[in-house]
Design a protein around this nucleic acid. Structure first.
Lengths: 236, 236
DNA sequence: GCATATTTGTCCGTATGTATA
DNA sequence: CTATACATACGGACAAATATG
């Protein structure tokens, strides 16, 4: 299991850190690497993230590594068990339901909040949709998933609240844990892109009620599909 | 600045104690102490939490201390500036507005969620109200504030979502930063207790619409009052 | 069930880079 | 500009907890 670690690649451009959480450079960089390994399924759920092994593979000290682990634990991508170590989060069906309920509440509330303003900027939404579409053309399914995350982040951002955006970021990061379950096929992703477009179009026409309803239906469908995939994998 | 640290009191020994239920490590215990110092105003906003000073005062190493700082930073009670250190969060009027908007969205959504269930358990709410009332009798204003936090946490818990509860916990912890601004008088707290009661009574009667409206009005009033106190303190 | 090896939790010393008086 | 203080990061150490044979 150590060889998975050794294939890590350090030259990773860190994504745009907009939020004020200026973290210590190395720990954050290590966390970014591990985050990716986790969401790509290199470290499957339940895997222990060993301090000696990963520390050696990445060439960082245990102190720094532990800081990185703490970041992942806060994002709920990992769980910390005292005197036992840090493990990649294991997901349950209840987690899926809870996650999607939280998303319906947050994103729904964001749209309702947006409805109370006169002008709403949907450019971030449109950008995410465009990204998703071109990624689908290129059959880059992982990029499609990322674009979808950006779409939902943009929805939450409509609330205009830094804290709601931060919460959404947290919940969406957790959603990435389920990407391993997703079938990476056109048939799987195509419907979602269409639903994205429809929501944006509702918003552009000022029909926030329709947008909210479409979003809720969308999230319920996604939850159902993910639960099915989960049952299929985990077995009865 | 340093003398504030020296006044810390060690109600519980940090080391050498083997609690069976001590699920948390030293870092968490340190964070608990600092959290209290911050919310009680011992460390005013903007204060730098110096690693050497606090580490020496509490008798923990910098490694452990840094982990504790990270916890506080994640709770937004402190901010971490790269290569500069950790500071007690400084609040702006915009922060107050953002915080209360987030609370309106989250707690409002929680009530709406509760409305979709047939039976809603309001015992936690009632308990918090009772606690607040008896604390007010005893003129323990800080305890009144704590009871109020419990009340709002219980409201968020109505959503029945672990993640929404966690988000609320985070936001409410941040709200404690404003406790320093509150006038610790009966006139200040009494109206809130009455509002709490009214919300519970709406919920018990199944009038979720009224409860949600009352909650929103409550939060807007609190925001307004806090903004006024902030302006008074910070000056123009 | 026990002895051993591994791993975590915590502390210390130190070198380097960064910010500030 | 220099000096100082501090944060960042590393490596080593040891006890306690856990896992292994």
């Amino acid at each position: 299991m150590g060889d998975a670690v050794s294939t890590m690649d350090f030259a990773e451009p860190l994504r745009g850190e907009k939020h004020l959480l200026a973290r210590s450079g190395t720990a954050e960089r290590v966390a970014t690497i591990l985050r990716r390994q986790i969401t790509e399924g290199v470290f499957p759920p339940g895997t222990r993230l060993s301090e000696p092994a990963i520390g050696a593979a990445l060439g960082v000290s245990r102190n720094t590594l532990r800081e990185a682990f703490q970041l992942l634990a806060h994002e709920r991508l990992a769980v910390h068990e005292l005197n036992r170590g840090v493990f990649v989060r294991e997901l349950t069906a209840a987690d899926i339901r809870d996650l999607y309920q939280a998303r319906r509440m947050i994103e729904g509330a964001a749209i309702r909040q947006a409805a109370e303003r006169e002008h709403v900027d949907t450019s971030a939404l449109a950008l995410a949709v465009a990204d998703g579409r071109s990624a689908a053309e290129a059959e880059q399914w992982r990029a499609v998933g990322t674009a979808s995350m950006h779409f939902h982040q943009a929805v939450a951002d409509l609330a205009g609240s830094e804290r709601i955006s931060a919460t959404a970021r947290q919940v969406l990061a957790e959603t990435r844990l389920f990407f391993v379950l997703a079938e990476h096929t056109r048939a799987f992703f195509e419907p979602y892109i269409k639903r994205h477009q429809r929501i944006v179009s509702h918003l552009d026409r000022g029909r926030f009620d329709l947008a909210e309803r479409a979003l809720e239906a969308y999230l319920r469908a996604a939850e159902k599909q993910l639960l099915a995939a989960y049952e299929r994998r985990a077995g009865p």
